[in-house]
Design a protein around this nucleic acid. Structure first.
Lengths: 247, 247
DNA sequence: GATCATAGTCGTCTGCCTGACGATAAAAAG
DNA sequence: CTTTTTATCGTCAGGCAGACGACTATGATC
C-alpha cells in the first residue's frame, strides 16, 4: 500500500559535511567555493543530494570520498588505515534555509588527520582548508562568511568536537596512525584554543588505561628530546574525562 | 532559479518523538498504537509528516501538542510553566526503514514531568506510557516490540537522556515546578536504574551553585521528615558532573 | 666541543571532590 | 511511646587535578 503522494509534501534531502582537521596549530574546516547561484562564489560546506537508494551515513561517506579522497570510518567498522572518523551531527530544515526549494540537510561531522591535501573531486570546484576562527569570525563580511546556514552548522560541529574530545578518545582521529604525546596535546590545544601543562597532560593520557598503546619506537621531529610513539588504544570513552580549562 | 525536479529524488520527511517521563520509579516512554498497515496494531513512537511551511522543531512541538497536550519548551524560549524539554535527537534514513516509500525521520527527544495523563489527540489512536525496560526487552515478541526502527530510536533517546543528566541540569525537566531533593534523586535512580546514596546526592545537588533554588516551602509527601522544596536554578551545565555509578 | 634552546618525562605537594558511612531530625505508622 | 521512614548534617580516607620543580636528550649556535 504505497502512500498517496498528495498526502505529504516532497522534500529534497542532502548531506553536508563538517570536515575538521588541525593545521599549523589551528582547527580548520574544509570548504568549497560555490560555482553557481545562490551564493555563487561564496564558500560553503561540502555536501550533496542523498540518492534514492543509499542511507544517510552512506551518502556522507560518498561525498567525503568525492571531495577529499578520504575513506570514512564508521564507528563500528574495522579497517584501520587512514580512515577518518564520521558521525551524524544534526539535521537542519528551516523552510527558508535554501531559497530555491525545501531542503532538509543532515549534517555529518568528520575528524581527519592533517596529511590529506584537499583535492578537488570530479567536479572542478576549488576546495581548501580554512581556519574555523576566520570562518566563524564575528565580522560577517561576505568574503569569508559561509553560504546558507553553514556557519551555524559549522559552529555546531566545532562545539561537538570540542566537547567530545573531553570524554572520548576521539582526539586521536586528528592524529596520524602513530603519534607522540606532544602531538596529541597540540591537538587538544588547537581544538580548545588553550594552553595545557605538558606534564599534567602527559600524566593524564599515559595513565588512562586503553587510551594510548606504546609502539616501542621513538621519534625526533623538530629538536628537543625524542618522544615515544603511540597508537590509539581500544578505549573509546575517557573516564574520568579530560578537563577543559575554564575561560 | 528553481531546481530541476528530476535532479534529486523526492523524500518524505517526518518527525518521531521519544517522550520520556518517570512513572512509579521507572523510566517510561509514550507510545501509540498503529491503526493501519504496516505494523497495524503494533506500538510505535508518536510522530507525523513535516508540513511544507514549518521547521523541524516546530513540527515536533506540534505533534507533541497534538498527542499529549504538552507545550514544548525550546532551550531558548522562556515561559516556564508546564513546558517539557524538547531537543533534536538524530535522523534516521535507512532506505528500507519504511516499506512503503523513502522516509527520512528526524527524531526528537522530549523530557516531561509525570503528571500529564496521556490523552489521545484529534485522531482516536490509543496512547499510553510504557516502561522502556519492557519496550527494549531482549525478547523481540511482536506484542511489545516497536514498529519500524523505533526500538533503535527509543534506545538512542534513552541513552541520550541517561548521559545528558550527568553533565546538565536536565533531570529537573522530569520534575514538577517545585520538587524535593528526594524526588530529584528518584529521577536519577529511575533513569540510570541504580540506587544512589541519599546523603552524597544531597550534598552534591545542593552544593552545585545555580542548580537548585530553595523556594522556602517544605512538604510532606509520604511519611518521613518534611523536605525542603526547590525550583530549578539557572545553571544548565553541571561542572563537575554528576557521576553515574559504574555497572 | 661547550653552551643554549627546545621538547619530553618523572615526581612532589596541596586542595577539591567523591564514596562510604555514622548520627541526628522530624514526621507517619503501629 | 516505640518503630519506621525520609531528610539532612558531619566525618574521614582515597583519588585525581593543578601548580610547579627537576632531570633527560636532542638540535642549534658560537
Amino acid at each position: 500500500m504505497p502512500y498517496d503522494p498528495s498526502a505529504f509534501p516532497p522534500f529534497a534531502v542532502t548531506v553536508d559535511l563538517v570536515v575538521l582537521t588541525v593545521r599549523d596549530h589551528a582547527l580548520s574546516a574544509l570548504v568549497v567555493r560555490r560555482g553557481e547561484p545562490p551564493y555563487q562564489g561564496r564558500w560553503a560546506l561540502p555536501g550533496g543530494f542523498v540518492r534514492a537508494d543509499e542511507g544517510l551515513a552512506e551518502a556522507a561517506a560518498r561525498e567525503l570520498a568525492e571531495e577529499t579522497g578520504l575513506r570514512a570510518q564508521q564507528p563500528s567498522g574495522p579497517g584501520a588505515g587512514l580512515g577518518a572518523h564520521l558521525e551524524q551531527l544534526a539535521t537542519y530544515g528551516d523552510p527558508q534555509r535554501d531559497p530555491r526549494m525545501r531542503v532538509v540537510s543532515v549534517a555529518h561531522l568528520v575528524l581527519a588527520p592533517d596529511l590529506p591535501a584537499p583535492r578537488a573531486g570530479g567536479d572542478a570546484r576549488s576546495v581548501r582548508w580554512a581556519h574555523v576562527g576566520e570562518l566563524l569570525g564575528r565580522t560577517a563580511d561576505s568574503a569569508t562568511s559561509l553560504a546558507f546556514d553553514h556557519a551555524r552548522i559549522l559552529a555546531d560541529g566545532v562545539e561537538r568536537a570540542r566537547s567530545k574530545i573531553e570524554y572520548s578518545s576521539l582526539a586521536t582521529a586528528f592524529c596520524p596512525p602513530e603519534f607522540t604525546v606532544g602531538e596529541l596535546r597540540r591537538v587538544y590545544e588547537a581544538v580548545w584554543g588553550v594552553a595545557l601543562d605538558p606534564r599534567n597532560f602527559h600524566r593524564k593520557v599515559t595513565g588512562t588505561p586503553g587510551f594510548l598503546v606504546p609502539t616501542g619506537g621513538t621519534t625526533t621531529r623538530q629538536g628537543g628530546r625524542p618522544a615515544q610513539l603511540f597508537r590509539a588504544g581500544g578505549a573509546t570513552v575517557l573516564n574520568p574525562p579530560m578537563l577543559r580549562p575554564e575561560v
